[in-house]
């Protein structure tokens, strides 16, 4: 009997039962959140497990009064800037390390390598001072620029570039194809799948940033979803349904992104949770 044929009878029943029980446990916090977000304020505390009242007003309130709409826009702008610029800088630096000849290459490479060892939390004490002295508190520059380059992305792409045989580059050169042409025609098409994974990974990391925006944001207009939720939770604890509506609004876009880009997710995580 091959092992991957479906088990019959009670064994498969037992497995399905276990799977279902575990799934229910995992979904329990999500379930209570959704129930609360769809209940009017006066009903939310009685029968917290039963959907005995329904309204969309709380979601609307969270969007307008709770300003989740504004926060969603800020987060989207930040995540798109960080992701797209990161992709460009990573391609450029990976290309330079793979195909260009220049002095002190090993030293520069070593500098890139060493940044991988430094956890984010260690740098933020000083980065907050830097951003302050640049006058970038409460600004998109402050939220994005410290993250627009990544050694991790550079290494990931360089690994793929290194698979291109040097002969190919030389042959292309003989045919008069310069570096920009070679990059466009050969190198970038080759790393396209990796770019997808890297892009999704950067997007997620940027979207989920919590500590950094909370250090440099004091004006409500510049809150991201994460810091906005923090504000909502601290100012409206007496309205748990409003907070839960806020968490739903914050979670749904990323849920959609992940469902669409499932393949890239697995690839990106296995390649690179290092800088998680």
């Amino acid at each position: 009997m091959a092992l991957d044929t479906p088990p019959k009878g009670w064994r498969s029943f037992a497995r399905y039962s276990m799977l279902t029980i575990v799934a229910l446990f995992i979904l329990f916090p999500v379930y209570t959140t959704v129930i609360a977000a769809l209940k009017p304020g006066n009903k939310v505390l009685d029968n917290p497990l039963v959907p005995d009242a329904f309204t969309l007003d709380v979601l609307k309130d969270a969007w307008t009064q709770g300003r989740l709409g504004r926060y969603l826009m800020n987060t989207t702008v930040v995540a798109f800037i960080v992701t797209s610029v990161q992709l460009v800088t990573s391609i450029a630096s990976a290309y330079a390390f793979s195909f260009l000849k220049f002095p002190m290459k090993r030293l520069v490479f070593g500098i890139f390598l060493s940044t991988l060892l430094v956890p984010l939390e260690v740098t933020l004490v000083v980065n907050r001072r830097t951003i302050d002295s640049l006058g970038w508190l409460n600004s998109f520059q402050g939220l994005t620029i410290p993250f627009v380059a990544t050694a991790f992305g550079t290494f990931l792409l360089r690994q793929v570039f290194m698979q291109i045989p040097p002969d190919l580059r030389e042959a292309a050169q003989m045919d008069g194809l310069g570096h920009w042409g070679f990059m466009k025609e050969v190198a970038i098409p080759l790393v396209r799948p990796t770019l997808g994974a890297l892009g999704l990974f950067s997007f997620l990391a940027s979207w989920n940033q919590y500590l950094w925006p909370s250090l440099i944001t004091t004006e409500d207009d510049m809150n991201t979803l994460q810091t906005g939720l923090r504000l909502l939770a601290s100012s409206d604890l007496d309205k748990p349904n409003l907070i839960m509506a806020g968490t739903i609004i914050a979670a749904v876009p990323i849920l959609i992104v992940l469902v669409v880009f499932q393949k890239q997710l697995v690839r990106g995580l296995t390649a690179g949770a290092v800088k998680g």
Binding site: T89, S90, A92, S93, Y95, A96, F97, L100, F102, P103, V108, I111, F112, S114, T115, V118, V122, T123, L124, V125, V126, N127, T130, I145, P146, F147, V148, A149, T150, A151, T154, H179
Partner: peptide, 23 residues
Amino acid sequence: IPLAFTMLGPSLLVLLTFVLYPL
């Protein structure tokens, strides 16, 4: 060299300013 400088410069500037200098 000029091309390498163009390609590595931006990354190097960001990594030095926001990772190694702060450390």
